[in-house]
Design a protein around this nucleic acid. Structure first.
Length: 720
DNA sequence: TAACCAGCCGTCTTA
DNA sequence: CGGCTGGTTA
């Protein structure tokens, strides 16, 4: 590579790095060797990464030799576009994407080294749940009325086990002690699940990273080739990586150690997915000689907003001490709005949005953020009635809908005719075929050299035999037709239409629009394998192709990571909503909830609104007074401008006393016999008997009967 | 014995 | 809206 002195990086417009502060410059100019950038929110870390890419290219580094790993593929391409504007179109050739996409791309070549076929299939969450259900059934676990945990829990346990060496019992002891009674069954299921995936060419999200890591560890020639191919590695959002990702990074950087990791420990919000923000602390151990750079100047927002966000993170138990100082002058205090209820909150947001819009702020420059996907339902309704266009990020996605999965299931069979999850789905579309019938057909498919031909000559005498034969013939013809991807999808849709109409009597027109959209996206991908991987790893958002025009952004906080808007509303800042009830009683989870609140509030450039409804609709229990979120109460009152509803709406009582008084610690009166409840450790259950003013006998779905003392027990009322 | 259907329950975040 | 349950049907 050429070695221009770094200070003379060429640019027609003079110094392209003008305007960078000394810390950013230091990060940009340290081109060789390991660098760790601890960056505060809004400190211009994207800008820093962009300039470093530009600097590398300007001094003659081949763009293909630079690998930029970011949280989403979109973040990578946005950065590369900016870099291209800075030094030229060559930057577009920089390799970039998520760890999972990178691992997938590499495994499409090297999968056989990990004992997998090159045409393996990726299992998403629902696929995993379905497979676990089947395997549990085969092992005689988890029948109705048993105490076996829910599939989502099982999947979480297995994910953690896979990432920590495969010891299910150890994981249970640490994180799910109340499930230790099921350890034996879970261990058997884990082994069956692992063996099954390997035997049938299926990988879940963890496998993509783990198998790629295995290949790198066992094959020095592969990792040396990686080291030669990618000379410069950059990782954004490093606080959200897990131990396996750190190992992959270590292995891919072999031979040069030119790695820059950028992250903010205060914004670590993916622990539930195995991310560990202590990774940041360990980076210097992984890469000896690491240079550490801190970015503490904030360019995004104003001092009053920053005072508020600093106050939030000051309560974090564990943190690097970073005190952000705003670069921008002026600004006003964030507004804390106490709404009567959820409708009032929705109206307030819609009013303000409309008035900003009238004053010239584009809708797309404003965002409403919330903890969970369903928290925005009422607001969506309000926006619809007022005709304010919006787009929603996070929550349920196009590719998770049943009809899309049906169509993709057929595509998966064409790619991998031994994909059990796909067979299951497709076979059960046939009227009369249920789980048992699908199992029987699949059992024969496993040993068949040509599964489609086998179906064509299906010998069974069941009523649905002709349908199975027709399906086999159809699949064989489709496979032989050798069509381009959009044409294949068109054929699948035509075949699927009768089933669609049968299955979704009410709303098949809407669903078939989704299918058309899927077909439209298919043109972008070269083959089915790529489409399926993209859909699993980086689900395309339907709105970005169809969403012309100016739209307000509604987003979960997780999906808002790394983005910013002029005006930000955070809604549902009430106990019971935020922090998430499931974090109750788990100090580590509560810390993560606080960091999540921090991420939300640091998205605002100009105006920040913190909204809390004083009354909330709790499922089953009805409308109840809700205390403000504990995180809201941690902010010193003088840092916020308090706003209450102008006039109470008719028919809605405003709780007169402070809401904290309005909801005393619930006595047994809140839990009558028969009520559905949830306990932080024992999970859901039903009240059997009230034994005293503070004592209840409860039957828990998973762990059976317990006597609880309400003075200590954290019990939550559910519907029912 | 397996599939189907109606009704009920509860909803966290995600590559 | 989707997953689960329990009763009904072929």
């Amino acid at each position: 590579m050429s070695r221009h002195p770094s200070t003379t990086a060429a640019s027609p417009a003079g110094d392209p790095d003008a305007g960078l502060n000394p810390q950013q410059r230091e990060a940009v100019e340290t081109l060789d060797g390991p660098v760790l950038v601890i960056a505060g929110a809004g400190s211009g870390k994207t800008r820093t990464l962009v300039h470093r890419v530009a600097r590398l290219v300007a001094r003659g580094t081949e763009p293909e030799a630079i690998l930029l790993l970011t949280f989403t593929r979109k973040a990578a391409s946005a950065m590369l576009e900016r870099a291209a504007r800075l030094v030229g179109p060559a930057c577009a050739r920089v390799a970039g994407g998520t760890f999972h996409a990178f691992a997938h791309r590499m495994l499409r070549v090297h999968a056989p080294l990990a004992g997998y076929p090159v045409s393996f299939t990726i299992l998403d969450r629902a696929d995993t749940a379905g497979l676990l259900r089947q395997l549990a059934g085969e092992l005689g676990l988890g029948g109705s009325g048993s105490r076996f945990p829910k599939k989502a829990t099982v999947a979480a346990i297995f994910s953690r086990a896979a990432n920590t060496g495969g010891d299910v019992t150890a994981v249970l002891e640490r994180d799910w002690p109340h499930l230790l009674a099921e350890a034996e069954g879970l261990r058997r299921l884990y082994e069956a699940y692992t063996a099954y995936k390997r035997a049938h060419g299926l990988m879940d999200y963890d496998d993509l990273l783990l198998r790629w890591c295995d290949v790198l560890e066992a094959h020095p020639e592969v990792r040396e080739a990686m080291g030669r191919r990618f000379r410069y590695l950059m990782v954004d959002e490093y606080q959200d990586t897990n131990a396996v990702q750190a190992r992959i990074l270590r292995l891919v950087a072999c031979g040069h150690d030119n790695v820059m990791a950028v992250g903010d420990d205060a914004q670590s919000i993916y622990a539930f997915r195995g991310a560990n923000f202590r990774n940041i602390l360990d980076f210097p151990k992984l890469f000896p000689g690491t240079r550490i750079v801190k970015l503490e100047r904030n360019y995004r927002t104003t001092q009053p907003n920053l005072d508020c966000t600093n106050a939030i993170i000051a309560h974090a138990r564990e943190k690097f001490t970073k005190h952000l100082v705003a670069d921008r002058p002026g600004g006003r205090r964030p507004v804390c709005f106490t709404a009567l209820d959820e409708l009032d909150q929705a109206r307030f947001v819609a009013d303000r949005v409309a008035s900003y819009h009238a004053r010239g702020v584009a809708l797309a420059e404003m965002a409403v953020l919330f903890r969970a996907g369903f928290h925005s339902f009422q607001l969506e309704a309000e926006l619809n009635t007022r005709g304010i266009p919006f787009t929603k990020r996070g929550g349920l996605r196009l590719v998770e809908a049943a009809h899309i999965k049906d169509v993709l299931g057929v595509l998966r069979l064409l790619v991998n005719p031994y994909d059990r999850v796909a067979w299951n789905r497709v076979l059960q579309l046939l009227p009369g075929v249920g789980p048992k019938g699908a199992d029987r057909v699949f059992a024969a498919v496993v040993g068949a050299p040509d599964p489609f031909a086998l179906l064509e000559e299906w010998p069974g005498r069941a009523r649905w035999t002709p349908q199975v034969r027709r399906l086999g013939a159809y699949l064989r013809r489709l496979q032989g037709a050798d069509l381009a991807l959009p044409a294949v999808l068109e054929r699948i849709e035509a075949w699927y239409r009768p089933y669609l109409e049968r299955r979704f009597l009410e709303d098949h027109p809407r669903r078939s629009q989704d299918l058309a959209q899927l077909r439209g996206m298919a043109g972008r991908y070269e083959d089915a394998v790529t489409l399926l991987a993209e859909v699993a790893l980086d689900p395309p958002e339907p709105d970005e192709s169809a969403g012309e025009g100016d739209r307000l952004v509604l987003s979960t906080i997780h999906s808002a990571k790394g983005l910013e808007w002029r005006v930000v509303f955070v809604i549902h800042l009430a106990e019971g909503r935020f922090p998430a009830p499931s974090a109750e009683g788990r100090p580590e989870d509560l810390e993560e909830e606080r960091r999540l609140f921090y991420v939300a509030t640091t998205r605002a450039r100009d105006d920040l609104y913190l909204c809390r409804p004083a009354m909330l609709n709790f499922s089953g229990a009805g409308l109840l007074p809700a205390r403000p979120s504990r995180f809201l109460e941690e902010i010193p009152a003088d840092l916020l401008e308090q706003v209450a509803p102008a006039s109470p709406r008719a028919g809605v009582a405003v709780p007169a006393a402070a809401p904290r008084e309005a909801a005393p610690p619930p006595g047994t009166g809140a839990f009558p016999p028969g009520a559905r409840v949830r306990h932080t450790i024992f999970g859901p259950g039903r009240v059997l008997e009230v034994l005293g003013p503070e004592k209840l006998r409860v039957h828990f779905d998973v762990s059976g009967e317990k006597v609880l003392n309400l003075q200590y027990a954290r019990l939550q009322r559910l519907g029912g």
